[in-house]
Design a protein around this nucleic acid. Structure first.
Lengths: 201, 201
DNA sequence: ATTGCCTATGCAATTCGTTGCATAGCAGGA
DNA sequence: TCCTGCTATGCAACGAATTGCATAGGCAAT
C-alpha cells in the first residue's frame, strides 16, 4: 500500500487537513493516485498514531474546527525507506479497453457515444494540464528540486493525455467503420481468430 | 466491478480453465486488467452459480483435472448490458509518479536505478507488443470484427509504451541533472514552491 | 535421491476500498 | 423560509483484493 506515502508527499509539499487532502486527491494528485475521504481519514489516524505526522487543531470562524497535519521526522524517514524499495508493477484497470474488446460480441456502434464522452474528458484534462504548466512553470530555468520533479511528472500527464486522445480517435475510427460495415447487431463472430496461444497480445 | 466482464470477454474469445485464465491475465490481458488466481477462481464460481458461464470437467493424463469454462447465453446478455453502462473514470495507482515527487524530500539520485529498471521493463513489453503485431496482424485488410478491435487495443498498448519510454527518459535526465547539481542528500526544500492553491496540477 | 519448478485448485485470514449514513453550522438562491 | 450545497469529520457494514498456506502429481536437473 502506498496511500500513506502519497499522503506524506502531499503533506511535505504543503500541510493540510484531511478534507483538504481529499480535495487534492480529487484534483491534482488524483491523476496518479486516487483515494476517497474515508480512506484518507483512516490512514491519517493511523499515521498520527505511528508518529509519521503531527496534528494541530485549528479553530475557524463559521466553519468546524479542522486538524492540520504535517509530516514528522519519522514520516520523512519512512518515506526515504520506501523510496529505496523496488517499485511494484502497476495494477492497471483499464475498463474502456475491456469494453472495446467486448464490443466484438455485441454491437460495436453502442460504444461510440461512450468513447466520445471519454474523449471529451481527456481533452478537458489535457487543457487543464497545459494551463497549469503555463501558470506554475512559466520559467523552466528557475526551478528548485521539488519544482523540477513536479514539472516532469506534469509532463508525463500531458504526454499521457495527448497519446490517449490520439488513440481514442483511432478507436472511434475503427468503431465507425465497423458500425457502417457489419450492420445487424453483431455478436456472432467465433472470436477465436488468428490467435490460439495464451501468449497472444 | 468489472473482473467478471473481463473474464467473460476472455472466455468468449477462447474457453479455458481458471488456471489458463490466470496466465492470460498475467500476459496479454494483464496489461489492461490485472487479477490473481484467487480472484479469478472466486469469480468463476460465482459466475457459474449465476449461469453466466458453463463448466466442463476435463480429465488430463499426468496433470490434475481441470474445469474448462465457456460463456453461456446469460453471460453474453450480461456483457451486453454492461457495455451500455457508462464507463467509470479509471482509478489510477501510479506509484512511480508518487516516488518521483517524493524524491524531492530525499535523494533524487536514489531513484535513478529504479527508474532505469522500470524503463527496461517497458522496453521489453513494447518489443513483445511489436512482435505480437507482426505475428497476429500481418494483413490489416483481412481482419474480422473481433480482430479489428483486438488490434486497436494493441495499438493503444504500443503507443502507451512508446510514450512511457520517452517520458522515463525525460525523468532520468531530470534525476541525473539534480544528482549532479545539488549534492549532499537533499531533503530540505520547503516544498511550497510556486504553488499555493489546492487546484495546482 | 533430492530439490525445485510447473500445472491446477482451493481455504482462511487479513487488509483495503467503497457506500451509506450522520452531525453541524453557515452561505446563497428560489 | 426552505432547500441545496459547502466545509469538516467520522462510524458502521459490506464487498473486494491480497497474502500465506495447502494439496497433489509430474518433470527436469543436480
Amino acid at each position: 500500500m502506498a496511500l500513506e506515502h502519497a499522503i506524506l508527499v502531499s503533506l511535505l509539499e504543503q500541510p493540510g487537513s484531511g478534507y483538504e487532502l481529499a480535495r487534492r486527491f480529487d484534483r491534482s494528485i488524483g491523476r496518479f493516485w486516487t483515494a476517497t475521504h474515508q480512506q484518507i481519514y483512516r490512514v491519517l489516524r493511523r499515521m498520527e498514531a505511528d508518529g509519521w505526522i503531527a496534528a494541530e487543531e485549528v479553530a475557524q470562524d463559521g466553519r468546524p474546527d479542522k486538524k492540520v497535519y504535517s509530516a514528522a521526522g519519522a514520516g520523512r524517514a519512512a518515506l526515504a525507506d520506501w523510496l529505496r524499495e523496488p517499485v511494484e508493477p502497476e495494477t492497471v484497470r483499464h475498463e474502456l479497453a475491456v469494453k472495446i474488446r467486448a464490443a466484438a460480441f455485441d454491437d460495436p456502434a453502442a460504444l461510440i457515444s461512450e468513447v466520445e464522452r471519454h474523449r471529451e474528458g481527456h481533452a478537458a484534462l489535457l487543457s487543464r494540464y497545459l494551463h497549469g504548466e503555463q501558470r506554475d512553470f512559466p520559467d523552466l530555468d528557475a526551478l528548485d528540486t521539488a519544482q523540477e520533479l513536479q514539472y516532469v511528472v506534469l509532463r508525463g500527464g500531458i504526454e499521457y493525455e495527448r497519446m490517449t486522445l490520439a488513440w481514442l480517435d483511432e478507436v472511434l475510427a475503427t468503431l465507425r467503420r465497423l458500425a457502417n460495415g457489419g450492420e445487424g447487431g453483431g455478436g456472432d463472430q467465433d472470436g477465436g481468430g488468428v490467435q490460439s496461444s495464451d501468449d497472444r497480445v
